[in-house]
Design a binder for these strands. Structure first.
Lengths: 375, 375
DNA sequence: CTGTTAGCGCTTTCAA
DNA sequence: TTGAAAGCGCTAACAG
């Protein structure tokens, strides 16, 4: 850790005199009591007579005393801080989750240290190390890990006594409390809605970032299981709906490769140009919806007349699109709040239940689904 | 702090034997060297011979040693953590800023502790206390303070030796490094664009949350100066543009009251129902744009034919609206990155420059502005 | 009820 | 170069 060096002159432990940061001893001196008495009243524990208590409080006020949480944590072994690891706090989805986590932990006296991984496993590993070093009391992780071989860092945290709860993404190799939404059911319901409107050629947009189009359904699933849990679940839901309706699976209708608005647009354009073109698209993310919309426009088509569309992640703007979009609403705040609640319960002594907490999403029906146009 | 108590059984400092968390002494013992030697190699400072160094490293690896950042911070006096206080991390704007802050501080070895205030000053005060207690090395604050009487908590932080930089919102009463965007110019440019298209009745949507419509321009400004800095600046920009075009100010064209999509819709509906109705709206926030759009539709009108619209906070969806929206893009990531950079420079020894760093926003011209319809 | 004392795990003189 | 020892500010026995 060479970056550790060079933190400017004289900020060391020695030269910070009594300037600015009075300690408990100074308060004790000022109040004319022993330091333990001062500590007891300031720390809010143990017994201390009203008179002394008052004197200590007065002295503390006068000196502008503030407890040193670091020192306290050193002795108690707890930091009242929970670490959070997500893919990207700039992403509205995770921002919402973060808010849920932060609101409920704040209410229970905990602060949160957030780290973004940008979906890179090595960042995630580094992040757990940082959190362990900073001695967080517990962690909430939205992990990019899938393989048994990718969970060592999480196991390490647990072995060191740091409880972990998973959020948004389950990890099969780990038997932990996990808070997710009903991705598979949500996807199935959305695709069913499309099927019921008569669609049989339904594109799946924003899938596994594989290099090339898988030839078979089996190949696709295999690839997906090497991928983000949510994506896999949503794909399965899509397949469920097709199966129920006995619609044959066509690998050409699933997007693979880079997840970006641009690439989603390209893929939808491709599916729209197929001889037997798609008449509907199901998007697993808001950004994908935007890409799809672009492609539809660019092809000179309009929804829901020529193409129907349903996507994940409802937001305010979806309601003012013209026509308004039928979208799946995820309970983002509750996702975070629940994860925090489960973790805090454990931190406060509850036994970890190691179960899957599945929250319900909701299909907000608006006007982007219409009957399938005649072939 | 009664919440401090009751953190479950036996997690105290005493009973954590060598289980799970080896200390430097244990590593030293395992390696058969003095603890100082172990500390030097593990801490990456001071001299230590290659052989011993290797032995210590091996021992550390074997025991799974991880440094205790808390203990290190206790002696060094620095935590390598910066505190961030924003109104709401669930808000996409702040989420973007956070990402900027987090990315650049992470790159320079700092972690971030984020607290949301939901625009409540008392929450902000509590947040600074928490950050002081946790001994962050510096703070980045998007403050709700305006008055001279509301900045005591920020002054207190500075007095305790914690550098502070302000982000997104300037606070006149404070002479600090401040990173903002050119709100006033951006607003003026937007409104000018409207004026140049022939509009003279331009609504200002999402203003000061006053209870009632101010009667005069002076009254409005007075009220605004008691309010959020960004709102005031944007209002001033609006007035600038009107003045330049010699368009008289009409208090009925500014929205006051609760900031919500719903209320924005109501206000736009009101302005649309005026005898001399508005032909354009300028919105200071994305949520306001959505409210305005609703109102326009509800009135059976369409943009840009009947009403033109420009708003703050460009995002992906604005480009796929039909027609696409002309919006002001704020450099959110850079806002955060710059704030972090300025703060980190100070933490690394630079003199605070106590100046205003103004970032440029950009008007993204698309198709929501048209000629003013004939009266 | 109050004060004394011994750590928490690390960094940092200071001698050896 | 290495090791012994003191100290960061707080909590937590343990006597008094």
């Amino acid at each position: 850790m060479p970056a550790e060096r060079g933190q400017g002159p004289g900020r060391g432990a020695t030269d910070r005199g009594s300037a600015g940061r009075p300690t408990i001893s100074e308060v004790a001196a000022e109040a004319g009591v022993g330091r333990a008495t001062a500590a007891r009243t300031l720390g809010g524990y143990g017994y201390v007579s009203p008179e002394l208590r008052e004197r200590v409080l007065a002295a503390a006020r006068k000196l502008g005393y503030r407890t040193n949480a670091l020192a306290r944590s050193m002795s108690t072994g707890v930091t009242h801080t929970i670490g959070v690891i997500v893919a990207d706090i700039g992403n509205p989805f995770f921002a919402g989750v973060m808010r849920g986590i932060s609101d409920t932990s704040r209410a229970r006296g905990f602060d949160t240290l957030v780290l973004s991984t940008y979906e890179a496993l090595e960042e995630e590993v580094a992040a757990t190390d940082v959190l362990i070093d900073k001695r967080v009391d517990g962690m909430i992780i939205s992990s990019a890990a899938v393989d048994r071989g990718e969970v060592a860092h999480i196991r390490a945290a647990i072995d060191r006594g740091v409880p972990v709860v998973l959020v948004d993404r389950a990890v099969a190799a780990l038997d932990l409390d996990t808070v997710v939404i009903d991705n598979r059911d949500a996807a199935r319901e959305a695709v069913e809605t499309l099927v019921e409107a008569g669609h049989r050629r339904i594109g799946f947009v924003w899938g596994p970032p594989a290099a090339e189009q898988p030839a078979t359904r089996r190949g696709l699933l295999a690839r997906t299981s090497r991928n983000l849990w949510t994506d896999g679940e949503r794909l399965r839901g899509y397949l469920d709906a097709l199966d129920d309706a006995r619609i044959p699976f066509d690998p050409e209708l699933v997007m693979v490769g880079e997840k970006s608005e641009r690439h989603a647009a390209q893929e939808v354009a491709r599916m729209l140009a197929l001889p037997d073109r798609i008449t509907a698209v199901f998007c697993t993310e808001a950004e994908a919806v935007i890409g799809a919309l672009r492609a539809i426009r660019a092809a000179g088509l309009s929804y829901p007349r020529d193409v129907s569309i349903i996507g994940f992640d409802d937001s305010a703007w979806a309601a003012v699109m013209e026509p308004p979009l039928t979208m799946i609403e995820q309970p983002v705040h509750e996702l975070g709040a629940t994860a925090a609640r489960v973790l805090l319960d454990v931190l406060e002594g509850a036994e970890p239940r190691r179960e899957m907490h599945t929250l319900r999403s909701r299909l907000i029906v608006r006007s982007s689904v219409g009957p399938a146009p005649a072939g």
